[in-house]
Design a protein around this nucleic acid. Structure first.
Length: 320
DNA sequence: CATCAGGGCCCTG
DNA sequence: CAGGGCCCTGAT
């Protein structure tokens, strides 16, 4: 589908703001769902059942943030839709975040302050809505990066949409209803294994409106976590991802997977393996309510570095 | 060639 | 609440 028309508007994020750190997360596995270069970002967004192309550009500075949003559409677009798109972008990229307290804590951390300073104003963000990120999280489960990419692409090729706008081709995840007539076996044929069952059942539950994303966003952390864990295929790790990225709960550094533990051990202690309890306690002591956000800064920083230089120990821990 | 564990989760006992 | 089984794939 080609989106030929465009409308633009501006958003003024809270200050300070870090555009590239917010709109590009190098630790994520490569997908066809968005594109990025310095100061520019593309993705598709779904409002109701309509798809729109987005190009988001940095037009401000860290202390005077301003971003330009171009919305690409096919037939038409209403003021309501523009409004929803704006609100969604603000929520998903946490553009109204108040990080004063976090930045204050960061200053007291002598060791990692250079990293926090470098990424000052970065937000934790998700390009996707709850259902979409859930799909991403499910293909991450118990798989290596290569296999995750393969599963995601197979699913997108079969059930996703391809949108052409601004000389880009960006994919979008299907709506849950689309899988109604799709059997578990159809999904299994895409070599996603037992995850087929999760995706089938999750799609059904979402299509039936059993999950209210808006409500989830407004809940406190414990209640939101409880709701998320009720979803079929969502355990502690997936709940953590969703809480952090979709609900913007900053203090979700509770579950530490073994592969993450190894990376944290190197990052924080320069040792091969430190107990998960120690890692958690040390971070919580220093960063309290911002535990996960603090870790996110340090985590993404090392993946940014990996773009340009070989980091041996990290290559070893990230299984491709 | 066979075996195994992986960027978890569900289910069972 | 600990442990087995699950899909597929690349590594050994």
């Amino acid at each position: 589908m080609k989106l030929a028309h465009r409308k633009t508007f501006f958003i003024f994020p809270s200050s300070p703001f870090h555009f590239d750190g917010t709109f590009h997360k190098p630790s994520h596995f490569p997908d066809k769902l968005d594109d990025w270069e310095n100061g520019k970002y593309w993705q598709v967004i779904r409002i109701g059942k309509k798809l729109f192309g987005l190009k988001i550009e940095n037009k401000g500075e860290a202390q005077k943030p301003k971003i330009k949003v171009s919305v690409f559409y096919d037939k038409g677009i209403t003021d309501n839709e523009i409004g929803s798109i704006k609100q969604e972008i603000i929520w998903r990229f946490d553009l109204n975040a108040d990080l004063k307290e976090f930045n204050r804590l960061a200053k007291s951390d002598k060791r990692f302050y250079p990293i926090f300073k470098k990424w000052l104003g970065m937000r934790n963000s998700s390009a996707h809505n709850l259902y979409e990120l859930l799909i991403v999280a499910v293909v991450l489960q118990n798989a290596t990066v290569r296999r995750t990419v393969q599963m995601m692409n197979a699913l997108l090729d079969k059930y996703g949409s391809k949108l052409n706008f601004d000389d880009k081709e960006i994919s979008a995840i299907w709506i849950p209803e689309k899988l109604k007539s799709v059997s578990e076996q159809d999904l299994r044929d895409l070599k996603i294994g037992y995850r087929a069952k999760f995706i089938k059942r999750l799609s059904q539950d979402f299509a039936e409106g059993k999950i209210e994303e808006q409500k989830l966003r407004s809940l406190d952390q414990e209640s939101a976590k409880k709701e998320l864990l009720k979803l079929y295929g969502v355990g502690h790790e997936t709940a953590r991802i969703l809480l952090f990225e979709v609900c913007h709960q900053y203090n979700t550094f509770d579950h530490i997977a073994p592969w993450q533990q190894k990376i944290y051990s190197q990052l924080f202690y320069n040792k091969p393996l430190v107990s998960a309890n120690k890692i958690r306690n040390d971070i919580k002591k220093q960063y309290g309510d911002y535990s996960m956000l603090a870790v996110h800064y340090i985590w993404e920083d090392i993946f940014w570095k990996k773009k340009n230089e070989k980091i041996k120990w990290l290559e070893k821990e990230i299984r491709l």
